[in-house]
């Protein structure tokens, strides 16, 4: 990973030289920001295909309003988004709170807006949960058990358990647990514990609540052991070099769509009341949380093993 970083910096430094040598041909990595279309990445917060279905109406609405074709691309892992930004295939993404902090630190994306949920909240928190009948109630009870994380680039699905283990004096969870694996989605982490595929799970409360609305077993059979601080809900962030007018149109469309009847319908299907402006400052809580766990964001290895 370090070698890749060095290679990247080397390439960036060499760019002016390459440009001078062949002025007529732009360097392959210096992709001209597209204003005709934007490709937005989606993290697998829930089932990949439902995630696509949830965001597609929003994409169509924003395309209509901004005059810029907006397409979504769902990714199998949270960390893939950062990789895609590095290879410049993606113009923006709906980031999870920790993913954004990582992407901001590594590739300098800028957040625009995030949704306000139907219960009028724009934040979420992480939870560690077990089955009620599992007799696991403390960190020590987790010894030799199976833990279902979500992804190394999630606050709820990884930072919270990491913090939990550190707070309870377990620096290396891998040796402590019988098995630790990454489900990739919050949904699967919840269902795995519910269906006894895992003993302990970590996921965000908003997904937990949404699933509980459809499946009463979740509240009946699972018990929450701890929770993380509130962090901003998944938000849209764009690459820094996106044209300012496109960025502003997109932001304006998002922030005013609840005032438009068509926009309200899309928001209703999306499961939100409106979008609110979000800035880098809103993520201080996540950075502070990462610091408490002693994570170096610049060097953090976010890809799952």
């Amino acid at each position: 990973m370090r070698k890749r970083w060095i290679a990247s910096i080397f390439c960036v430094l060499c760019l002016p030289l390459l440009a001078a040598c062949s002025p007529k041909e732009p360097p392959p990595s210096a992709k001209k920001p597209s204003v005709e279309k934007l490709q937005i990445g989606l993290i697998p917060e829930q089932n990949l295909f439902r995630q696509m279905e949830r965001y597609e109406p929003l994409g169509e609405y924003l395309s209509r309003k901004t005059g810029t074709k907006i397409t979504f691309k769902v990714l199998p892992r949270y960390g893939n988004i950062i990789d895609n930004f590095k290879s410049s295939n993606m113009d923006g993404a709906f980031f999870g709170s920790f993913t954004y902090v990582l992407a901001h630190a590594k590739v300098g994306v800028e957040v625009l807006a995030r949704p306000v949920a139907l219960d009028n909240t724009s934040t979420y928190y992480g939870m560690i949960f077990v089955r009620k009948d599992s007799r696991i109630r403390t960190a020590r009870d987790m010894k030799g058990k199976r833990f279902a994380f979500v992804d190394k680039a999630t606050t709820a699905g990884y930072l919270l358990p990491l913090d939990y283990f550190q707070v309870h004096g377990i620096p290396d969870y891998k040796g402590f647990l019988k098995e630790a694996y990454f489900t990739g989605t919050h949904e699967d982490a919840i269902f795995d514990v519910l269906n006894r595929k895992a003993d302990i799970g970590a996921a965000k409360n908003t997904v937990f609540q949404r699933l509980a609305n459809d499946d009463p077993r979740i509240l009946k059979e699972l018990v929450i052991l701890t929770r993380s601080p509130d962090v901003p809900e998944n938000a849209l962030a764009l690459r820094k070099d996106i044209d300012a007018s496109v960025r502003n149109r997109l932001k304006e469309s998002l922030l005013t769509m609840h005032l438009d009847p068509g926009g309200r319908k899309v928001l209703e299907r999306f499961g939100a009341l409106k979008f609110i402006e979000t800035t880098n400052q809103d993520y201080c809580v996540v950075r502070k949380y990462a610091e408490e766990i002693h994570l170096d964001l610049a060097t953090y290895e976010y890809m799952n093993n």
Binding site: P44, L48, F49, R50, R77, F182, G184, T185, D188, N305
Partner: peptide, 9 residues
């Protein structure tokens, strides 16, 4: 299929 595509275990 979604599980197969996203899980790392």
């Amino acid at each position: 299929l979604s599980r197969v595509l996203t899980i790392r275990a």
